[in-house]
Amino acid sequence: MPRTLAVQAPAAGVRLITLQRPEALNALTTELLGELAAELALAEQDAETRAVVLTGSRKAFAAGADIKEMAERDLVGILEDPRVAHWQRIASFPKPLIAAVNGFCLGGGCELAMHADILVADEDACFGQPEINLGIMPGAGGTQRLLRAVGKSLAMQMVLTGQPIDARHAQRAGLVSEVTLPELTVERALEIARAIAGKAPLAVRLAKEALLKAQDTDLASGLRFERHAFTVLAGTADRAEGIRAFQEKRRPEFTGR
């Protein structure tokens, strides 16, 4: 059983992972990242899991890397940091990942939230990359994902000043999809996850991959992948079930085939 996470299955097809280091505002240790990577690997292998919600506490999603642990690592330790592999496994999770963000979402916590496909935040949440205040910079994708999410000017401001932005600013900039009351953040994220879990799993996975490729490839390459994925889905049993259910005016029963 993980020591720094709580894992639940609150609805069919949905897995809820909660970071549990409240004494340290869910600061990200090597142990926590390793347990999270392992749990996502289990979720990937589980055919019944179709969407995952990741959250923290009401006070903090995650307030960054664990500074005490960071201070204990020398240059060799940084170069051989096992957390690099954990981050890579988290980044490669192929199923929909929704982050429910309450409170502080800073440094590594903000980088972790940006690994999610959809971010829901409470109105008191704040997002930032304050690493510059420690004489360092984001090192888990913060400079790359933040710029793609909010644009060059705001990303430069956040990274170079270390100053955070609030949830409404994050929503206007495109980092967050919805802003909720604090007590409703996880509930709303689970609602979105349940909606996704009811869709055809193969279509969801390929649609996610196509959307991510739009960030990383040119338009022509993205369109080629989209067309190929569309053609692949045309031969699936779920497509036939979706069309049949529409014609029969009933809810489709997708099987992932």
Rank of each mutant, 00 (worst) to 15 (best):
G198W: 08
I78Q: 11
A195C: 09
V176G: 07
D218I: 03
P130K: 02
I67M: 09
A43C: 06
A12K: 08
V84A: 14
E48M: 01
L233H: 04
G77E: 11
A214T: 13
E209A: 14
R250D: 01
Q45A: 15
G162M: 06
F104E: 02
A125D: 04
L134S: 15
L16G: 00
L16S: 02
L28C: 09
K213Y: 10
F93L: 02
I243N: 11
G222V: 07
T236R: 05
F104R: 09
G198V: 03
N102Y: 10
P96C: 05
L32T: 15
D166W: 01
A85I: 03
H115T: 13
M158R: 01
A121D: 03
H115F: 05
R58D: 13
T49A: 00
E241M: 11
A9D: 05
G135L: 12
A155D: 05
P22T: 09
G77C: 01
K208I: 12
V53I: 08
A155R: 03
T217W: 13
A27S: 13
V53L: 03
V179S: 12
I98W: 00
N26D: 05
E31L: 15
G242C: 05
R15A: 06
G141I: 04
G242T: 07
D66I: 05
G77P: 11
Q247L: 13
P22I: 10
R73L: 15
A125Q: 04
L219Y: 06
Q163P: 00
